[in-house]
Amino acid sequence: MMNKRKISIMGLVSAVFSLALLIGSLTFFKSVCGADMHCHQANTVITIMGAVMLALSLIAIFLKSKVGAVLSFLTTVCGVVTALIPGVIMPLCMMADMSCQATMKPWTILLSAAVALFSLINGIICIRKK
């Protein structure tokens, strides 16, 4: 009983953080530097990754088997990749006080790291339960 609850909670937390990342990248934390800036492409990719992680996390909540573990680890990888998108994988604007650098980048790093961490814990719990 105990493990069942834990798996659901970790998966749920991961899904909530993915949803926050997705909503943030579309609203408060989206890049507003100008339509022709590089950061808009990065913003779009982050939104897509947020949606993918949300879908994976939601499915993983209901799967407590080997498949659940695989999905959770996949979410972890997505989380790590998403955290690296702003500034490392994709370029952002040059000034640190521009919205993409000041808000979009930290929000993405913080939330993606949280998604990666909780998905990893969920995956480990799935494996141990098996």
Binding site: D97, Q101, A102, T103, P106, I109, L110
Partner: peptide, 8 residues
Amino acid sequence: LFSDALLS
């Protein structure tokens, strides 16, 4: 992470 946003 948010030091630049805080400064602005």
